[in-house]
Design a protein around this nucleic acid. Structure first.
Length: 656
RNA sequence: AGCGGGGUGGGGUAGCCAGGUUAACCCGCGGGGCUCAUAACCCCGAGAGCCGUGGUUCAAAUCCACGCCCCGCUACCA
């Protein structure tokens, strides 16, 4: 029998993960681990907290604690959260684990002795005040290409040009603001290009890789691999084991990917079976990695190359399930802008299986998908509550009301009954086939679809009509319906484990046990409840989530949209983009605005123009000048056009 | 800029790799049925011809080319 290692990407724990992080990694991995276990396979599911590196060090400094204190705290928190999310890890460990540290050092020493590591001097920005070398992201300054003042050392967010920190004008350290200097430092490199041929073969000959992972990796290989730097001048990390590398640590990415192995070792060491981990990494063991698409190079290129470089004969990743991204209400999840839902707040709002079901049913397998509250309501109310929950509840209630909560015997099956039982088998087959291809989204749908068919069956057969007149036939129908409930429990286990357990409990069965005629079930209680938009609004309030509201004519009226005529345009001393503009709003009313139009319009172009304004803006001061209204303009990729009435109307005309 | 992934009824998705019955499913919408069940459930109907153009083919949403649009990546941000 094959041994399976299920692995999910290690969350970087400078903060709690959000919904997008876990659907691609730990939640998907959990489904697969549960599924394979249910098939009787030998499965080990591992992951852990990724806790080294500059961002965590900086976060700790900000909070006045040590990095270790920070990660101790966050690791405990995240670990507990994953338990609450019912993620069935066999080992959720961390990169500070002594087993990991020891393994990484041994591993790289081996790779070093095998001759795949070399050193090189390079020049990097160094902050004399923080006394540290700065990663590119930690240097900010003016972009040499477009002049944007807040460009990062690796890229300008305004014009998109890739940059080198040395090119920035007036560079500064983002931690303390000091001007960095360029210092020379020596670093150790992993000779990745040496594995290009073998990697190409690996990718090309692995038919299981999803197309995004495959194509992206082949593209990287076509473009040519570069040596990967292995070390950093950062104190918070695993000390590099190479001779002469005192004071250097291993770059976080390059050690965290080895965590999959160290977590396996740690698991078996704790069990007292020191050598057993090898069964999960050698001799035909199969590994499945669950990651987001941003992680493809590390799992399809770098990890396999490192395994090759060890020359120990490790099995390479059997497949990598790389999802696209989950968006939140049409936007990227953003910690700084508070866009999204984090896994701690999610559970404070609704039961874990509401989330698991919704996320799994929109798992971004083909393209980016979008989480919206509207969608959440649809999944919970229509799928879970109305379809699944109601079918189970109506069946068990019927059973208790008419048959003393006892499962009746099968009796004589009609074609419709046989058809229903065939649908159960068909659903199980589809479920197996789809999960075998790691198509979780479709597999979830298969289960809901079965419940739908069961509702139809129940309706068509109308057992309530027969309960008095033809008790035997009614009995047969309820026998069949009960078996569907039983099947739903096992099919739901991987997706919504808490609900599955609850169904087993109501059936008074142990998970996986078969239902027999005469078996007594419990009085049912509803598995789900409906969620209202209002409830979401109340719970999700606090500015964390944004609900898309439809606008009424009254809302439009609130803006006080009016036509106004520009009667005066003046430059604002000292401002690069601003004009001070006076507008005639009709009836002798003159209001002033300060608008950023100077780069788009000359003063004489604006003078006399009829424009659309929001007349009841809350006044603000810009460059010390009052701005009371706002001129509406359209923006298209850097070009700006003022809105103006299509034929002349009186200033002050209302806009409807 | 280059590269990768996409553009399918009003909304959300599947189908595309392995071309082929009336383009599937959920929500929503209009009408009807049932009353066992959590105002649930079931049925019927309206609504797209699959971004555009051109090609390959007996046959294309599915393959190819070009164009337009969206998202992401470009690897010392984790």
């Amino acid at each position: 029998m094959a041994r399976w290692l299920v692995a999910s990407a290690w969350p970087y724990i400078n903060y709690v993960p959000h919904l997008g992080t876990i659907i691609g990694s730990v939640l998907s991995g959990d489904v697969m681990a549960r599924y394979l276990r249910s098939k009787g396979e030998q499965v080990l599911y591992v992951s852990g907290s990724d806790e080294h590196g500059t961002p965590i060090e900086v976060e700790a400094i900000k909070r006045g604690i040590t990095p270790r204190q920070l990660t101790d705290e966050n690791h405990e928190k995240v670990k507990k959260l994953f338990e609450a999310w019912k993620i069935s890890f066999d080992n959720y460990t961390r990169t500070e684990s002594p087993v990991h540290v020891e393994f990484v050092r041994d591993f790289y020493l081996k790779v070093y002795r095998n001759g795949y590591i070399f050193t090189q001097e390079e020049e990097l920005p160094y902050c004399p005040n923080c006394r540290r070398f700065l990663p590119d992201r930690f240097v900010q300054g003016q972009c040499p290409k477009c002049g944007y003042p807040e460009a990062f050392g690796d890229q300008c967010p305004s014009c998109g040009s890739p940059l080198d920190p040395k090119d920035l004008i007036n560079p500064r350290c983002t931690i303390c603001g000091t001007t960095p200097e360029i210092r020379s430092t020596k670093h150790w490199y992993f000779d990745l290009p040496r594995f290009a041929e073998k990697l190409k073969k690996y990718v090309e000959e692995n038919p299981r890789l999803p197309s995004n992972a495959r194509n992206f990796s082949l593209k990287l290989l076509r473009e040519g691999l570069k040596p990967r730097s292995l070390t950093r001048d950062v104190s918070w990390g695993i000390p590099a084991p190479f001779p002469g590398a005192e004071g250097k640590t291993i770059y976080v990415w390059m050690e965290a990917v080895l965590g999959y192995i160290s977590a396996t070792i740690e698991y078996w060491r704790l069990k007292g079976e020191e050598e057993k981990w090898r069964e999960y990494w050698f001799n035909g063991a199969r590994s499945i990695f669950f990651i987001g698409k941003d992680n493809i190079p590390f799992h399809v290129i770098i990890l396999p190359a490192l395994l090759m470089a060890s020359e120990e004969g490790y099995e390479l990743p059997w497949t990598v399930s790389s999802t696209e991204f989950l968006m939140f209400e049409g936007k990227k999840f953003s910690k700084s802008q508070r866009i999204g839902v984090w896994i701690d707040e999610a559970l404070e709002m609704f039961p874990v299986d509401y989330w698991r079901y919704t996320l799994l049913s929109i798992r971004p397998e083909v393209r980016d998908t979008n989480f919206t509250w509207e969608l959440f309501l649809e999944k919970v109310n229509a799928d879970l509550n109305d379809t699944l929950g109601n079918f189970i509840h109506r069946t068990l209630t019927f059973l208790c009301r008419f048959f003393d909560c006892k499962v009746p015997p099968e009796g004589e099956l009609t074609e419709a009954d046989r058809q229903m039982l065939r649908e159960v088998e068909r659903a199980k087959e589809a479920y197996d086939r789809l999960l075998g291809e790691i198509r979780i989204q479709q597999a979830v749908q298969t289960v809901t679809e079965l419940a739908r068919k069961a509702n139809k069956y129940f309706n068509d057969r109308q057992p309530w009509r027969l309960a008095a007149s033809n008790r035997e036939e009614a009995a047969t129908i309820l026998h069949v319906a009960s078996r569907v409930v039983e099947a739903l429990a096992s099919l739901l286990e991987a997706f919504t484990p808490t609900v599955a357990l609850e169904i087993w409990r109501m059936l008074k069965l142990k998970p996986g046990e078969n239902l027999k005629a005469g078996h007594q079930v419990a009085l049912p209680k509803p598995l789900f409840r409906k969620v209202s938009l209002k409830e979401v609004e109340e719970k999700a309030g606090g500015g964390v989530k944004v609900l898309e509201e439809k606008v009424t004519p009254e809302d439009l009226a609130r803006l006080g949209l009016k036509v106004a005529k520009i009667v005066e345009v003046e430059e604002v001393p000292g401002a690069r983009k601003l004009y001070r503009i006076k507008l005639d709003l009709g009836g002798g009313l003159i209001k002033q605005t300060v608008a950023g139009l100077k780069t788009y319009y000359r003063a004489d172009e604006l003078l006399g123009k009829l424009v659309v304004v929001v007349s009841n803006m809350k006044p603000v001061k810009l460059m010390g000048l009052d701005s009371e209204v706002m001129i509406l303009a359209a923006e298209d990729d850097g070009r700006v056009a003022i809105l103006t009435p299509e034929r002349p109307v009186k200033p002050g005309s209302r806009i409807l």
